[in-house]
Design a protein around this nucleic acid. Structure first.
Lengths: 143, 143
DNA sequence: CTACGGGTTGGAGTTAACTTCAAGGTCAAG
DNA sequence: CTTGACCTTGAAGTTAACTCCAACCCGTAG
């Protein structure tokens, strides 16, 4: 199980949680009761992760997975909503660009050429853009 | 207060929450104690929203705002983290594109030309990509 | 005047998405 | 046979980010 977890960059707990809420189908088991995943499982989890970054909630992602895999259509309205959401993507990406520009400007203006340490630290901890669980590289030791 | 809230698309509660946790400075008050915001407030909230879509936590956004407005540098490491995060942006946007392609493919394959209603609804509710608070257009009445 | 739609507060409640826990079973290495 | 790293379960706990509540004040319209 931790094999799949590390493949897709989550914890085993998260995988079991996804299974509980129905995002992952119950996998086959070994004689001892251990979960045995196929390759599709990794795909599925990666789809979930992508959809999360896209701003969808797990419940909504579950519906998408149903559509994707069974051709099950919740209703005509759903199609419209999906289309709207897809249409919003370019606006979304433009916003990302704007934020990146903001941040790059900050880097230029306020942190010119400071590549190492030795700065006055007025602020405690910062660790950018990683959900608290994400494992490797605990950059948190600002002090 | 609700004027600013509707300008930036949040609730007054959220604005007061941001103020409580230090993301928004305490604004001037009218004689009666009402909050009086300047235009910079809207800018600030919009920056917060963008940064949230970017995947940052409010605590981290607070640090960014400090850097942005006071040139205060938490430490050298922060610069590196910011740069890393900025560098991740293109990967992020590529992932978004991939997801959009997934969704568009689903639309093509499973929902061909169904523009209206009258479909069999096998699934309960879906409302794509909007945080529960976001107000206008309650498409939730799938049934 | 009262009604009504705003505003104010502190604190409590909610939601999504994990995360941890206790208590145990499995299994290859030493 | 024991140690240690894995796996199992249901249930309870945690965290971030709101969201709601009671109880009150302000200002205008009728």
């Amino acid at each position: 199980m931790s094999k799949l977890a590390s493949q897709v960059g989550t914890s085993t707990d998260t995988l079991r949680y996804y299974e509980r809420i129905g995002l992952l189908p119950e996998p086959d088991r070994s004689p001892a009761g251990y979960r045995l995943y196929g390759d599709d499982a990794a795909d599925r989890v990666r789809f979930i992760k992508r959809a999360q970054r896209f701003g969808l909630r797990l419940e909504e992602i579950g519906e998408l997975l149903q559509i994707r895999e069974q051709g099950l259509c919740p209703c005509g309205r759903t199609k419209r909503l999906l289309e709207e959401r897809v249409a919003e993507l370019s606006e979304e990406m433009a916003a990302l660009q704007r934020l990146r520009d903001d941040i790059e400007q900050m880097l230029d203006e306020h942190l010119p050429g400071a590549d190492g340490d030795g700065w006055q630290c007025g602020s405690s901890l910062i660790q950018i853009g990683r959900r608290p669980n994400t494992e490797r590289g605990n950059h948190r030791e600002c002090f």
